[in-house]
Design a protein around this nucleic acid. Structure first.
Lengths: 115, 115
DNA sequence: AATAGTAGGTACCAAATAGATACTAAAGAG
DNA sequence: CTCTTTAGTATCTATTTGGTACCTACTATT
């Protein structure tokens, strides 16, 4: 009976997801970090996810950091160096995002056609 | 060489995706239609994806219709009846969205913890 | 006659999101 | 002495998005 009750009131996973990772650049940034699968500097990431602005990239990275999907390492050098990397938790999204990217590649033409 | 050139300039699938299906409610609506896998009336869909407003649901459904992910069938009865259904193309997203929903269910606690 | 239900449309307003630009620090190159 | 580099922050504005409220048309019910 506990199970039944819990299931019926389970919050929609999709609503939770879009509340967690939202914004135009969120998925592209996260996917790039997952594909790279190594530490990457802020500037390099910005070039990879062009044409995102500095402000938006910073904001998204902080959001990912706060929920534990990304780590941030700051080196007090001059000029400054900051490196970002997906966490193990973040990497668990790889199969899902691979699937999404593959779907998009397969259906690009079908989808852009209608207008 | 064509292959090389094409690959290097391939638009990011993730950017394409977020441009195609954007908005707070897009994924929840689409996933609900996919899970239902049958025609569903506007009102029933709105109740299922609560608390979405009429306006937003209408807007999203029209967007999905325009790119061929959803069909709209209007019956000139009184009171009016309009039914929506995912297309075959839309159904091809099922495995990906299932995977996303599963990921979210598995990592809900981990993610909400950090604050 | 008044009300409810259906699937919207429309106008208005607020909030969230995104973009452009300028500014900072400290070191090294020229 | 100025320019460049890096990873931001601050400020301002523009665009997009979402919400509330109110409107239609027609039927059935009260």
């Amino acid at each position: 009976m506990t199970t039944l009750f819990t299931q019926s009131t389970e919050p929609c996973p999709m609503v939770d997801f879009v509340n967690l990772v939202s914004g135009k650049w969120a998925i592209p940034i996260l996917y790039r970090l997952i594909v790279v699968d190594d530490a990457i500097r802020f500037g390099a990431l910005q070039r990879a996810v062009a044409p995102i602005t500095q402000k938006e990239l910073t904001k998204q990275l902080r959001a990912f950091e706060s929920i534990g999907l990304v780590t941030r390492a700051m080196y007090p050098e001059m000029p400054p160096r900051v490196e970002y990397q997906v966490t193990e938790l973040g990497k668990t999204l790889k199969p899902t995002l691979d699937s999404l990217a593959q779907w998009m590649r397969e259906h690009r033409e079908e989808l852009s056609a209608p207008l």
